[in-house]
Nucleic acid binder design. Structure first.
Lengths: 211, 211
DNA sequence: GTCTATACACTGATAGAC
DNA sequence: GTCTATCAGTGTATAGAC
């Protein structure tokens, strides 16, 4: 009934397995940290024997690096909200929305990223020093331009960005604490909207933009 | 020359060793996470044989619990800035200052706390559900009182607190990223003041308080 | 390509001499 | 109280049958 595995089929299987392993790894690394995560548990969550995980990703560190790398890419995509904005209200507002949405849909990725940075970014220091520095300086210049044009208050662009990163990612990284303070139930869709509105209201008004 | 160890002397030695172990543990747990930290490394940093660490703290988990517990206490002390404030400008401003100062002087503790919460607070969930919930609800009522009195904008107190926690702790938890974006050098005293001012400016203006 | 069995290193914890 | 030596358990990684 079933045909012999063709090269195409094998490639499909390979991609499926790699995706399953990466998804499982993101979850396990987020829940247990790099040191606490085990290849055995990642294999179990992915539904594969441990040796297969090592077949696709030779070492634990290589798998971890791939996970962190994927997260960083997603993170950078949200940065697009900044570009093509006609002013601070639109640009910063859309950026906050995008990052809040990422915290809602991708909490595990955010946690892995936070963990990596908290431990001194041993794996992705080169990303930080190159891509992130470049991105940050570019956006800081955009913000400074808005300030020079009198479209918002003279706030240090870097500290403004830190405040936005910290607050939006808090809903993912400290999601467990937020849930506990919410009576041990996850935020509802309405509460997520409330959070987005509260953050945007404070930030935009705080930098002197009407909204 | 030296006298026999008296009970007093032994107690002093005991306290010194415990303090050294706790300080080393905080540092190692912050840098490597719970799973990545080893009793051997903690012992080395503390300058003691590994067996001695086990003599004072029977298990790794017990030592970790003690570290997290200490951090939580320090965290709650900063909360005092809120009490006795005559209004939102003073209360929230002082609270931000206190939390920023904690991030500057106690970054390791902040990281351990963040790591613990990110992994679902397996050790200190009872603290969260009791002490933190109580503290948060109490302060939320204070803020709501200021709102009702027309002294600040009608912002959701919980989301305001999350924004303050996230932003102030970001300078500790993501200190490595901040440093990288600062040209690979730590923030100077002047830059810390700049950060404090930026955060307070955005938050206070953002909630409709003149300052 | 897939999976079982296993080598090898390391960790938390403890026993027992001092 | 202190420290050396060691055990039991677990982790990453791989060899080799299929």
């Amino acid at each position: 009934m079933s045909a012999e595995p063709t090269p195409l089929r094998q490639n499909v299987k390979r991609r499926e397995n790699e995706r399953a392993i990466l998804a499982a790894a993101e979850k396990v690394f987020a829940e247990a940290g790099y040191g606490g995560a085990t290849m055995q548990l990642i294999a179990d969550v992915a539904g594969l024997p441990k040796a297969n995980v090592h077949y696709y990703f030779q070492t634990k560190e290589e798998l971890y690096r791939q996970v962190v790398s994927n997260i960083f890419d997603i993170w950078l995509q949200a940065a697009g909200s900044f570009d093509g904005a006609t002013g601070p209200a639109e640009g910063i507002g859309a950026y906050i929305d995008a990052k809040m949405e990422l915290s809602r849909t991708h909490p595990d990725g955010s946690k892995v990223w936070a963990s990596e940075v908290m431990h001194g970014a041993p794996i992705i220091q080169d990303y930080l020093e190159n891509i992130l520095v470049e991105w940050t300086e570019g956006r800081a210049r955009v913000i400074q331009g808005w300030i020079d044009a009198g479209r918002m208050d003279p706030i240090s662009p870097h500290h403004l960005l830190y405040l936005i990163w910290a607050t939006t990612q808090h809903y993912a990284d400290f999601g467990h604490q937020v849930e506990t303070l919410n009576g041990n139930v996850p935020l509802t869709a309405a509460q997520w909207d409330e959070a987005k509105t509260a953050v945007k209201t404070i930030v935009l008004k705080g930098i002197g933009v009407c909204g």
